[in-house]
Design a binder for these strands. Sequence first.
DNA 1: TTTTTAATAAGAATTATTCTTGATTAAATG
DNA 2: CATTTAATCAAGAATAATTCTTATTAAAAA
Lengths: 124, 124
Amino acid sequence: MTAQRREVYEVVATSTDHPCAGMVYDRVKDSIPSISLATVYNVLETLSGCGLIKQINVDRDATRYCPNLEDHGHFYCEGCGNVTDVYRQAERALDERWRLPEGSTVTSVDVALKGRCPACASVN
Amino acid sequence: MTAQRREVYEVVATSTDHPCAGMVYDRVKDSIPSISLATVYNVLETLSGCGLIKQINVDRDATRYCPNLEDHGHFYCEGCGNVTDVYRQAERALDERWRLPEGSTVTSVDVALKGRCPACASVN
DNA sequence: TTTTTAATAAGAATTATTCTTGATTAAATG
DNA sequence: CATTTAATCAAGAATAATTCTTATTAAAAA
């Protein structure tokens, strides 16, 4: 655990806006001005590999990072671009939700909802 | 509806492997050798906009295209890279599945499962 | 202390996609 | 039918996120 890793993790953990690599880079530079963008990418990859943070992808936008390790989905607002965490109404096993090919194994389920958040929906 | 549009749509509609733009380009060239990759991108965008095909994204891989307009998710095999359609066990309204912010509107729900298909899971 | 290993910084390289421009084609109008 | 208008297309340059390469630095092991 290096200073760079500690600081990158800290930035993601204390951010509520699901920042992308460039945003993390900008924020980490406040405390480590010499850090390189490539290092931020490396560290984000390492932290994701350890399961300390999660990558979230909406369409082909830049990958964003999420410190919330609970089972949840993401709601992307097409008005303001914000991403918020959303939770299931009821916890249900995967095979109660999806008909999967017999004998397959599943390692992850990503759910991305798109639409307009209350603020943006009310404007128009 | 031009020849290019007809042919691009035909290729996507008759493909079962969820091809990306480059793959569509290669296949369409058989019947329209002069077509350009940019045109394939334009047409795929147009067809997606009309709702005739759907874009599917897994992580930041190249966008793939799906002619299946039913409500379904996608299962990406980390072994062979294939993408297959998966269906819900039961049709349930969105707000029975997710707790959404009061007053929000939802335009799309994308579900991407990752794991190993039966063939790849049995090998290892 | 010396040697080995891993992490970092910097910038070049890659890849999917978009943009720009000029040429063609199709549709609309006189 | 001729002509204007608009949309589409082809080709290649441009862009943006990400990865790769190489040299340097820091940490760990011998």
